[in-house]
């Protein structure tokens, strides 16, 4: 796995999550909202999932949401941050571990369901992580993921970029890159999932000010963790300019601003015996030429 480009600093992310854990309840609105939407997806699928894994459990929001509304008997909660996992353990879930999504510690065919809410946008080797997830699923097991899409924080990204270009004559990445929905569906298929579905939902969240948005991102442990990020803080004047631009472009008459979070929902199934499958190439019984010429009737000869 060494040849994979390292975009994100996983140790930095872990430290951020550890730091965010004690007060995470004050900043869990996004985790909760996306958790509820994910639980709704699950409810539409009329299946029982006796053994389930949640990747990126934070302090246990999803376990709380799922309690009493799904056919899950055993839920294993996992988070990269030990501090988050430790808080989740005290909640509704019970079985909790700390693990890295890039190196999963689960035996093959352990779970009927793997859920991941807002955890995979920080993974360097997403194809590798998806393959590991598929292997951890039993045949016909379901993977259900919600993650941040490319339009997330577009307003903030533009304001920072424009301010930095204007004030410092150049720009560096300040907001992490996100995947887009098409990538997501492709990646699932390449990782060997069947019957994949991808769709997006745009959440508009209102904040008292651009500064309050930044404070919330910090509280969520979601600030930029790219390796390419500038090690220096942004100049105060540049940040002030970015905040002013944001306010000017997206502020309402009362001074509040909106921020967009694009959430991509992905579902895929580990291949199983009962699923509809494409036939193997060359296994057809009817000649295509015959079929197209019109005299090949449906049953072949």
């Amino acid at each position: 796995m060494n040849e994979v480009a390292q975009i994100f600093d996983r140790n930095l992310l872990r430290r951020r999550r550890d730091r965010a854990a004690p007060n995470f309840d004050d900043f869990d609105f996004l985790a909760r909202r996306v958790g509820e939407l994910t639980a709704d997806c699950l409810e539409d699928i009329r299946r029982q999932f006796p053994t389930a894994l949640e990747l990126g459990c934070r302090t246990g929001q999803m376990a709380e949401i799922l309690q009493g509304r799904s056919g899950i008997e055993t839920l294993v909660q996992s988070d990269l941050s030990e501090a988050m996992a430790s808080r989740a353990k005290g909640g509704a879930g019970g079985l909790t571990i700390a693990a890295d999504e890039e190196a999963l510690p689960f035996a093959e065919q352990s779970f009927d369901l793997v859920i991941s809410c807002l955890a995979l946008h920080w993974v360097n080797d997403l194809p590798g992580a998806l393959i590991q997830i598929r292997r951890a699923l039993k045949p016909d097991g379901l993977f259900l993921a919600a993650f941040m899409g490319g339009a997330t924080l577009a307003e903030l990204r533009a304001a920072l970029l424009d301010a930095e270009t204007e004030m410092e004559g150049g720009a560096s990445p300040r907001v992490s890159p996100f995947a887009d929905v098409r990538d997501g569906g492709d990646l699932l298929q390449r990782a060997g999932f069947a019957l994949t579905v991808a769709n997006t939902e745009s959440l508009e969240v209102s904040f008292p000010s651009p500064a309050a948005l930044l404070a919330d991102l910090r509280g969520m442990g979601e600030t930029n963790a790219t390796i390419q990020r500038r090690r220096s803080f942004m100049r105060k004047s540049t940040l002030a300019r970015a905040m002013a631009l944001y306010q000017e472009r997206h502020g309402d008459s009362g001074g509040r601003i909106t921020a967009t979070f694009e959430i991509i929902f992905l579902t895929g199934w580990a291949p199983g015996p009962g699923q509809s499958q494409p036939l193997a190439p060359g296994s057809g019984q009817v000649s295509l030429t015959k079929a197209l010429s019109g005299d090949g009737n449906q049953g072949g000869d």
Partner: peptide, 15 residues
């Protein structure tokens, strides 16, 4: 050897 702290297995190679 992966440590178990407060009943939580810490399955991180770094730890």
């Amino acid at each position: 050897a992966y440590p178990i702290r407060d009943g939580i297995p810490i399955m991180l190679v770094d730890e």
